[in-house]
Amino acid sequence: MTRGHAHGAPAPDDGQHLQQEGGQTPLTRGVLLRCAADGELTPEGRAALEEHMRACPQDEACIRFEVQLREACSRAMCQCDLPADLRETIAAKLRAGEPVVVARIGADGRVGGATVWIRRWGLAVAAVVAVGIGTTIIIQTGLRAGGNTANAAVVQLSSYLATEHDACVADEVVLSKHLEITDPQAVPKKYQAIFGKPISTELMESANFKFVGAGTCQVPGAKESAHLLFRRMDEDGTEGPLVSVFIEPDPSRLGLKEGTTYAMKDARSRVYAWVSDGLVYYVVTQCSKSCDAARRELHAPANVAQLGR
């Protein structure tokens, strides 16, 4: 099809494009007719249309087609069944002064991953895990230093995470003590205190993971941190391995950079860490498949680097 210059509009490459709303959009015949149907022609465009119609009056049918098509598109797209409880859900949370979206951390919000996370993981809070202060000092010192000391600190950190995970997996008494809150409704206040940012909870389990429990712990070198435990569910509904997710609010001491997932050395478990929106996330599990799935669900960066040696 030829350009609009054949119908009274300047050629697209002649430097005299019509100042249609689209700026330098060439006023081809197609553009001219569709803009006419939309009532979007500028005075110049209307003049071009009049000239064109004198030459091609049959194009009136094209404009009629576009008008009809718009009506048809409107009919086809306007139908949507608003979920019955969506309005009330939002209204209720507004009345309660709660953030609407679950587990969206911070005003800027990790909107993508966070939403999925909200739906699939849920949050809770539990008791503080006691950590020897000596260990904390070692880790902090090590991470600030370089070379072997830093490497040792990373190993010790990953060891702590794996140990905490193993303890909850192996012993139900420890599990119930460390991850004492199983009701996600109890989460918001506690997490607000840890992260200083609004977090609400709306547990929506997915087919892949089932929320087990959550609580607070003390990742070495950090202040209070979050520990969440999930069970991976197989496609047929059978229970799979447990996966821990730790969150700590201060990423700076580790020197981690956003955009990279760090593999941390541990003899027993797979431990991965990454930074997102001012928080450090750790995934710990003994199952590589579950680890991959958890990282994927949490939108961990695809780029993986080794942390420590």
């Binding site: 099809m1 030829t2 350009r3 689209g22 959009t25 060439p26 081809t28 015949r29 197609g30 553009v31 001219l32 007719l33 569709r34 149907a37 049959q58 194009d59 049918a61 094209c62 404009i63 009629r64 087609f65 576009e66 009809q68 098509l69 009506e71 048809a72 598109c73 009919r75 086809a76």
Partner: peptide
């Protein structure tokens, strides 16, 4: 934008509801 103009089908008598699924 596509150069081609809209089709010139006369759809005035067409029952658009029948087209909805395809649309």
């Amino acid at each position: 934008p596509p150069d081609e103009p809209p089709p010139a089908w006369d759809l005035a008598s067409l029952d658009w509801e029948q087209v909805d699924d395809r649309l």
